[in-house]
Design a protein around this nucleic acid. Structure first.
Lengths: 213, 213
DNA sequence: TAATCACTTGCTTGTTGACAGCAAGTTTGT
DNA sequence: ACAAACTTGCTGTCAACAAGCAAGTGATTA
């Protein structure tokens, strides 16, 4: 008698095991984001994450194994969200329109979800350290973004909208570097850059230097 | 008679107090760079720095106060070296030539001093964390670079070599973001970008989008 | 000029509190 | 009953600090 009433998320008690872990996982990842924003990478402790999430000091350690393991999950969780957000907006576009849409999407993402964007940037910063255990996560995400952009450029060359003497790899590197660098500058000192204006100018620059004729 | 022979750095013994600190300071900063490259920010310990430098486990802590204090010194030391290197090469140039020379200089700097460039990038990464105590050092350096580039652009507009509808602040942000971002990509995965090629393309891109006519 | 003494500075060692990571135990779902 | 989620107890490591030791420095006196 697999009663369905059992599976309906009852307001207080009696969750299924899977629900329990899902809930505590989410709570700890959110707590980790909070604490990362408040105290940064080094001063965020596993005990504090567990307790802020409403559990014991040991749960974060038990669930994610290590501090790096938890940060890796946070990193992947936000990256997934961002890639979905991007994919949804760019759709089947390619060439210069795809690149411009991606710039707009990135700007709206950091405007709508500044918390996630900041946390991701903090984690990417930590990934610059040689022994950082979630370094490969950062590498993979950046590599994927480089590949996507290079493919947009190739498609643009293919349909004749982009000059054929352009090197897709170089443009992709330039483009992703611009986004990474801007996010860093914006994170450490929001007043130092006008992200929106810079993006608009970037779009003009892209058209000027890539567009055929 | 204040004999000079006393001040001549005798090969083994009898250093002046100032000499002693200068020597141990340098040794510890070099040791810190080594260890940062080997183990990253978190896994580099003050004790290991003191010992690798040939002193006791306590000296780094005593001299620099905190781990962040030491990293701040390392950051400033390398930044000074880079800014001198840059200033020497750019000289009194401005406008597009200054921007192109700076790109070349940056590439030759990371080729000639990869160790310093990598360490600096690791430290900048750590500065993304909210409570990082050397965050302001990163902010100041980046702000100065933004200002320098913006001034180059203004000078270029002034002498008529750069289009007058260009926004210097935006271009500066774009330019510094490109350099920061490329360095990050290069650091975490050297194979993913061709820094030299991207720089060459960036120079073409700058001329195409900034140059008058 | 040289010898001694008071003082300063460089450096080391002992100690404390905090944290990551693990293992053994307890509670909750199935 | 069993297993899975979760907690508590514990250990080794580290940053930070404080007390002490040793080497350098400057002034005084003869």
């Amino acid at each position: 008698m697999t009663v369905d009433a059992k599976r309906v998320s009852s307001p207080t008690t009696s969750k299924t095991q899977a629900e329990r872990t899902a809930i505590s996982d989410r709570a700890m990842i959110e707590a980790a984001k909070d604490l990362l924003l408040e105290h940064g990478l080094e001063k965020t402790t596993l005990a504090a994450i567990g307790e802020r999430a409403g559990y014991s000091r040991g749960l974060a350690s038990y669930r994610f194994g290590t501090k790096a393991g938890l940060f890796d999950e946070v990193c992947k969780s936000i990256s997934r969200r961002w890639l979905d957000y991007l994919t949804e907006r760019v759709g089947r576009q390619h060439g210069i329109p795809a690149m411009c849409t991606a710039l707009d999407s990135f700007f709206s993402f950091i405007t709508e979800h500044p918390r996630d964007a900041q946390v991701l940037q903090i984690l990417y910063g930590g990934a610059a350290s040689p022994a950082a255990e979630y370094r490969s996560t950062s590498i993979n995400i950046h590599q994927r973004q480089l590949d996507d952009v290079a493919n947009w450029v190739r498609a643009g060359i293919g349909d004749g909208s982009i000059r054929s003497d352009i090197d897709p790899g170089s443009v992709a590197a330039q483009y992703i570097a611009y986004i990474s660098g801007m996010t860093y500058l914006w994170l450490i000192n929001p007043g130092s850059v006008d992200f929106g204006k810079a993006n608009d100018d970037m779009k003009t620059h892209l058209r000027r230097s890539l567009q055929k004729e």
